[in-house]
């Protein structure tokens, strides 16, 4: 475990806690894409299949449980909780996320490190996570006023994978035979998708103005 990866995991944890805080305390999911939340729940469900078979460390297991628990409870809140549902913008959250799931599944069946069920599912989760933010970014473009918590959520979610890229660079230079092209390329694509959001988020923060994305 290196500082970049720990910082990445903590940033990821913060993004999830910011979202849970928003939904649980003010009972609002304004500006949040249910599609992205469902995709993330699927990402964690297919990535952590080994949670009961391979014990890496207490930290690893606890974090997996937190990510699984939070992503599924966020989906539950947005689908079932009467009060939260009222603030869900279903007219604008219309990204057909099936268009993301199927190509990722096909790609995972074609390009993977080993052709086993767990490995293909894990690879699918890597590809899916790279594009899972798209419905959320599309929704942000459509909703004019982006509230602070939503902006912070997306910012931390994007920042965590860029910290992971630093972690992969560090591990590449410090650990022999540490090469994972699939994860590296997907992680890079994932981070690049946030590039314009980062630009507008940081410039809105610098100019101390409300975050708005161009239509």
């Amino acid at each position: 475990m290196n500082a970049f990866r720990l910082a990445g995991d903590m940033t990821h944890l913060i993004s999830v806690l910011v979202l849970l805080l928003k939904i649980h305390t003010i009972k609002s999911c304004a500006g949040i894409s249910l599609k992205t939340q469902e995709l993330y729940a699927l990402v964690f469900a297919t990535r952590y299949l080994d949670i009961f078979t391979d014990f890496i460390s207490l930290y690893n297991t606890v974090m997996k449980l937190i990510f699984l628990g939070s992503s599924f409870s966020i989906v539950w809140y947005m689908r079932r909780h009467k009060l939260v549902q009222r603030s869900y913008d279903k007219d604008h959250d219309t990204f057909r996320h099936q268009l993301l799931v199927l190509p990722c599944l096909i790609l995972a069946l074609l390009i993977h490190e080993q052709f086993t069920f767990k490995e293909v599912m894990w690879t699918f989760s890597i590809y899916l996570e790279a594009v899972a933010i798209l419905p959320q970014l599309v929704l942000l473009q459509r909703t004019r006023n982006i509230d602070n918590l939503t902006g912070q959520y997306v910012f931390f979610l994007g920042a965590y994978r860029s910290l992971y890229i630093l972690n992969w660079i560090y591990r590449y230079f410090t650990e022999p035979h540490y090469v994972h092209w699939i994860t590296w390329i997907s992680g890079l694509v994932q981070t690049l998708l946030y590039a314009d959001f980062f630009y507008y988020y940081i410039s809105s923060w610098k100019n101390n103005v409300k975050l708005t994305l161009p239509a």
Partner: peptide
Amino acid sequence: LAPESVKDEL
């Protein structure tokens, strides 16, 4: 050391 295929990252 965990074998190569085991994923130690989240």
